[in-house]
Simulated assay, not measured.
Amino acid sequence: MIDLFSLKDKVIIITGATGLLGSQHAEVVAEAGGIPVLLDLDQDRCNQLADKLKQKYSVDAIGYKVDITKEEEIIDNLSIIKIKYKYIHALINNAANNPKVEDSTEKAFSRLENFPTAVWNSDLAVGLSGSFLCAKHYGFLISQNPAGGTILNISSDLGLIAPDQRLYRKAGLPEELQPVKPVTYSVVKAGLIGLTRYLATYWADKNVRCNAICPGGIENNQNEYFLKEVISRIPLGRLAKKDEYKGLVLLLLSESASYLNGSIISADGGRSVW
């Protein structure tokens, strides 16, 4: 049974690898004996995380500065990966902008009627187009692996349900200045679900599976009012701890999930079923 969950010597690409969730994905790969290949925009942070994983788990972790919105950078990185490892076994599409709820009293930046097209384009370029480009190139190399492999897309509970905008309201502000969860977050996370279903059938004959997880919110120093309100909407009565998705990620990357394909798994404490 332990062997079913092993990632020993499997080369696993992780985008947005130095972020809050990305670093947890990288850690579980290393804990299970895999080779985490860390992609992010900051080479120093990639190196720091790779060094930490090498020292802690004795694995061949490595980091690369790659802007996944630029196809030529992905292609250049892929050529390095092919020389170094020959095959890729898995891809975790984790990178995303996290559009902030704006609370400016001068202009309600986050509201749909004010939302800048440039921010829309940037958020979709990273979270959705970037995932497509990574699947196009890293995913294709996975399909060349004789044993196949897997693609894991990181969606969100807000890919399944609409954001409850009441959570973001500020006392004393007129309606036209009330902050909201930006539209791009929902669009990107819902789009990843569509991409997952497409990829689940595309290379299935090559034994390449694709699944998505839809995490809920993570404890990360949110203000007391927000926490009180949001946990009242979650059956388990709390947000997730940052390491609570590691087991699910390991399951989906490993051979223990060898017949799981095209699945969209909510991991949100039950929020999306209420």
Rank of each mutant, 00 (worst) to 15 (best):
A212F: 01
G148D: 05
N77E: 05
S23L: 02
L152N: 06
P116V: 01
Y64A: 07
L53F: 05
E224R: 09
L158P: 05
K107E: 12
T105D: 06
N98D: 09
E176S: 11
Y202T: 09
I234G: 04
C134P: 00
C210G: 02
V187R: 06
D76F: 09
I62V: 14
K242Y: 04
C46M: 08
E244R: 07
I2C: 09
V188P: 08
K170N: 03
R111F: 07
G237H: 12
I68C: 06
G63S: 08
G149F: 03
A162K: 11
I80S: 13
N207R: 15
D60M: 12
K8G: 06
L152S: 05
A17D: 01
Q144R: 13
L251G: 00
V249M: 02
N221D: 14
I265R: 09
F226W: 13
G216P: 02
L141I: 08
L248Y: 05
K70W: 06
L195S: 14
S258L: 03
K181C: 15
V66I: 09
D243R: 09
N93I: 01
L195H: 14
L195M: 15
E255S: 15
A26V: 03
R169P: 00
L158F: 15
Q55P: 01
V11H: 01
I234V: 12
K100H: 12
K241R: 14
F226K: 04
Q43R: 10
C214D: 04
S263I: 09
I154W: 03
L253G: 03
V119R: 15
G33W: 02
P182L: 11
A32D: 02
I83Q: 14
Q48N: 13
A257H: 02
E219C: 05
A17R: 02
N93D: 01
I14Y: 04
G159L: 13
S186C: 12
I234H: 08
A257P: 02
S186V: 12
Q178P: 12
S104T: 08
G19Y: 07
G269A: 10
A240R: 04
Y85N: 11
R45F: 04
S110W: 10
P235R: 15
Y168P: 04
F109V: 07
G19M: 07
P174I: 08
N223H: 07
K52Y: 14
R233W: 06
G149W: 03
C46D: 10
G33V: 08
Q24M: 06
D60L: 14
S58Y: 07
M1H: 13
E224D: 13
F115P: 01
V188F: 13
S254Q: 03
R233E: 14
P99F: 10
T201D: 10
L177K: 15
N145Q: 05
E224A: 11
I151Y: 06
R209G: 11
K65G: 03
I74Y: 12
C210Y: 01
Y168V: 04
S23C: 05
L177M: 11
L133A: 03
Q144V: 01
F140S: 08
L141G: 00
L91E: 00
C134S: 10
L236F: 12
R45V: 01
D157R: 15
E73G: 09
G130K: 07
K84T: 12
I14M: 07
A90R: 00
I193F: 03
W120Y: 07
Y198G: 06
N153T: 05
S266R: 10
T201R: 15
V101Y: 04
S266A: 15
G19T: 09
